[in-house]
């Protein structure tokens, strides 16, 4: 097994700043937009982005939510382990709003498909976009593509991409683990 760092803290900071700027550029200072982090790991990325939007761009009224997709997944009864749920925290209506789904890694696309179904239980948004930090190219099982990408990495099925965030780990860092 080999573990290689593909992004360090400085590189991640640069990418997050760029993603925040892209969101502001496309969404008119996020007035009619809700950022939604997917539980559990997309929420770390959501927190980082809202922090940048506040500290570097002075936007203190970002609408955001945290969405759990456990009961919308398509692999129920198909895994050995019990699926683990988290709480959704959606204190805002999505009806008529623009939504940006946020997750750390886009792999097969199945989580995002589940999120698209889950978000419907809170109303009908006028538009949904997808922001991911890592896009694992050539791994998709569904026709789903991101609108905002940190970086693209080429991986095969047995590879793992691990995103570590300061707070839970020593520092922000992203690793590619290959099963040799």
């Amino acid at each position: 097994m080999s573990k290689k760092e593909i992004l360090n803290k400085n590189q991640i900071d640069t990418i997050l700043n760029r993603l925040a700027c892209q969101l502001l550029e496309n969404h008119a200072f996020l007035k009619n937009t809700i950022l939604i982090g997917l539980q559990p790991r997309g929420v770390f990325l959501l927190d980082k982005l809202t922090e940048i939007l506040l500290n570097k761009h002075g936007i203190n009224d970002v609408n955001y939510g945290k969405l759990d997709i456990t009961f919308f997944r398509d692999d129920f009864r198909r895994l050995d382990k019990q699926l683990t749920a988290n709480f959704s925290k959606m204190n805002i209506s999505v009806e008529g709003k623009k939504i940006i789904l946020i997750d750390d890694v886009l792999y097969t696309g199945r989580s995002i498909r589940s999120a698209l179904t889950a978000i419907d239980t809170f109303g009908r948004p006028i538009k949904i976009e997808l922001l991911v930090l890592i896009d694992r190219r050539y791994s998709r099982e569904l026709p789903i593509q991101p609108d905002y990408v940190g970086i693209q990495v080429d991986t095969i099925q047995n590879d793992k991409v691990v995103v570590e965030w300061e707070g839970t780990k020593k520092s922000d860092s992203i690793y590619l683990i290959k099963d040799l």
């Binding site: 009961f71 919308f72 997944r73 129920f76 709480f87 959704s88 959606m90 179904t117 419907d120 239980t121 809170f122 109303g123």
Partner: peptide, 12 residues
């Protein structure tokens, strides 16, 4: 929490 949403159904 789920059954207090506008749409109360999951596909599980």
């Amino acid at each position: 929490e789920l059954i207090n949403r506008p749409i109360k159904k999951v596909p599980t």
